[in-house]
Structures are given as structure tokens and as C-alpha cells.
Simulated scan of single mutants.
Amino acid sequence: MGADRDRNGGRGSDKSDDALRDGGLTTGEVARRLGVAPTTIRSWDRRYGLGPSTRADGRHRRWTGPDLARLRRMCALTGAGLPPAEAARLALDDSRPLAPSPQSKPQPLSPRAPGRSRAGSGLRLGDVRQECKGMARAALRLDAAALDETLGGAIEEHGLVEAWTELIMPTLQAVGRKWETSGERYVEVEHFLSWHVSGALRRHAPKIAPGTRGATTILACAPGENHTLPLEVLTAALTERGLPVRMFGAAVPVESLVAAVRRTGPVAVGLWAQSRTTASVPLAQHVSAIEWGVRGARRKPVVLTLGPGWAGQTVRGLPHPSGLAEAVRAVESFVAR
């Protein structure tokens, strides 16, 4: 029971507070408080002078309350997209406000800022906005609090569709490229970022009231396909517009998808395929031919082939939206009919 209390912020939290008052926290304890890696804190100390005021025995770092406050400030500023060197300068200047100065605030979504940018550990982001750099830095240092704050702020400020298209997706693609070219060194960063994006989408999407009726849309990954995040954002965008959605997630078996279509009679079915190996033209054609209803008033679903796996395999008569905004508009038009 005692160990459980330590993990849940009971006795262990009290000891940590006592250490902060009496002699300071270790780097590991500070890292756990801030939700960042200990190596990140040591790097900030070495590069920018954000180290502790005192060191035990002249060597070991012991962080006090003011030291912790500076590190919290550093996390907030880098999470807002400031370069680490600039964030450190502001963090060390106790007279400055916590928020970045107006000229350092994230740039508006249009027009595009010229040039290319890099965000921590050589992560090439290309021609992107300031917010992308904040997301990338938070993901690279595995900073959960800063990443959640940056994702939530982007969605609230720019709207779900634009935040996904202009900010979140470019950051995800950059992390994916880093993983592919680094011998799988950044797998944990990609998983970490994807998980927090998924959580942000769920928090943002409004709850559908019980008993809500209307033409529904089914969203599912093709059999063998496990990339669900694009369907999660489409689910959130449709829900945001009050359109009923049934999301079935990854690798839905053929028989299960067919059964769901027959049971619910959707106006549209979105099939996601990330690669050509999972895109199945016969499956799309089969689902689009399913009928229900009384004789003389039979209906069929419109099947949307979603994702890059369908490129070059466009099925005649089945829409292939090129992006999130196009998919949302397509579903809205089918529901309106």
C-alpha cells in the first residue's frame, strides 16, 4: 500500500516537496515533475546555463524552487514554438512575463512563412508554421504536458480541419521521415506524438446526444490496415458538424464490415488504406453494391476510398477525396441528399 501511495502522489509527493524545501530535488525527480527526459534537463544546463543554483558536494545537481520555476518557464516557451536558445534567454530573465513576446508568437496560418525550419535533433520540418516547431520539440523531448497544450491550442485557435492539415500532419510526416532515415531511432517519438494527437482529437470532438438520429457514416480501415489516425480526425470533424459516425478502427475483417453496413444502412462508407497492399478494389465494389430497404426504394451506400493506398487504383463511380477537407465536404453532400 505504501508503494502505491508513492506512485499516486501520496507519501512520495510529500517527500518530494520536503526535498524541494530542504536541499533540492535530483535531476530525475525534476524530470518526473515536468514530464521531460533527464537528458533534456542536463542539455539545457550545459548549453544554456539553466542549471541549479547549487550542487551537492560541488558536483551533483540539486534543484530548488526557483530552479524548477525556470525550467517550467523553459518548457512553456519551447512548447509555444520558440527556439531553445531564445526560450532559455527569456527563462533566465525573471522580469519577463511567462508568455513569449508578441514578435515571437506563432505566425498566423496564412500567408506561409518563407524558408525552411528545423526543430531539435535535426528534425527537418520544411516550410511549416511556428506551431509545428513547438509540437516537434515537445514530441522529441517526450514532454506530455507541453504537447497536449500545443495540440489543444492549435485546434482551438485554427479549427480542427486547418490545424490537422497545416500543423499536425506536417509534424507527423516529419517525425515519420526522421524514423525512416535514422535506423528506427525515433519510433518512440512517433508513437508518443500519435497517441497525444489521438487524445486531443477525442477531447475536442463534442459528445453526440443519446437518441441522435440521421444518416450515418461508417469509417473503417481496410483489412490488414492499422493506421487509424486519419480516420480518427475525420470522425472528429464529422462529429463536430453534428453528423452521426460509426468508427470501427483498424484492420476490420471483410465479413464484419459487410455485417455492419447491412445492420446500419449508412449513407456513406469511408475505407482507409495507407498502402497499396491494403487497398482492395473488390472490397470497395462489393460494399458499394450492398442494398437495403423495401422493394422499390432500395438504397446503397456511397463508398469513399480514403488514403494514399488508393492512388492509381481509383474505382469508377467511387469518390477519392484528396484530403480531410474534401472528405468532410463529400460526406456532408451525401447526407444532404
Rank of each mutant, 00 (worst) to 15 (best):
R299T: 13
L90Y: 05
F248V: 00
Q274R: 13
A88D: 11
Y48D: 06
D94E: 14
L151C: 06
A91C: 01
G249L: 04
L229E: 03
P206E: 08
A273D: 08
T216I: 14
I208T: 15
Q130D: 14
I218L: 15
A259Y: 02
E332C: 13
L50Q: 07
L71S: 05
G65H: 06
D67K: 11
E188F: 06
K300D: 00
L34M: 03
R42A: 11
R202T: 09
N226F: 15
V287D: 10
R329L: 13
L68D: 05
A136Y: 10
G176A: 14
R32Y: 07
S13I: 05
R46V: 09
Q313G: 04
S256N: 10
A289G: 15
W63Q: 02
A222Y: 00
A136K: 00
G159P: 11
S43L: 11
K133F: 02
W310F: 02
E156W: 06
A154Y: 04
Y186H: 11
V294Q: 15
L109D: 07
K15R: 12
G296S: 12
H158W: 12
I168Q: 05
N226L: 13
E188N: 01
G122K: 06
W272Y: 15
R47C: 00
L257A: 01
L318K: 05
R263D: 14
S117A: 14
S182K: 07
W292M: 01
C221D: 06
A3K: 00
L123P: 03
A259T: 02
G49Y: 07
A3N: 04
P301L: 13
E166V: 07
G28I: 09
V245Q: 08
Q107N: 15
A200H: 11
V287L: 13
Q313R: 15
S198G: 15
G214F: 02
G51C: 08
P66Q: 01
L238S: 10
L77A: 04
R262S: 09
T181P: 00
L257P: 04
L147D: 04
G183W: 03
A85L: 08
A297V: 02
A138F: 11
V128H: 12
V331H: 03
W292E: 02
S53F: 00
S110Y: 11
V187M: 12
G214I: 04
W179I: 01
Y48W: 10
A37H: 13
L219C: 05
D22S: 14
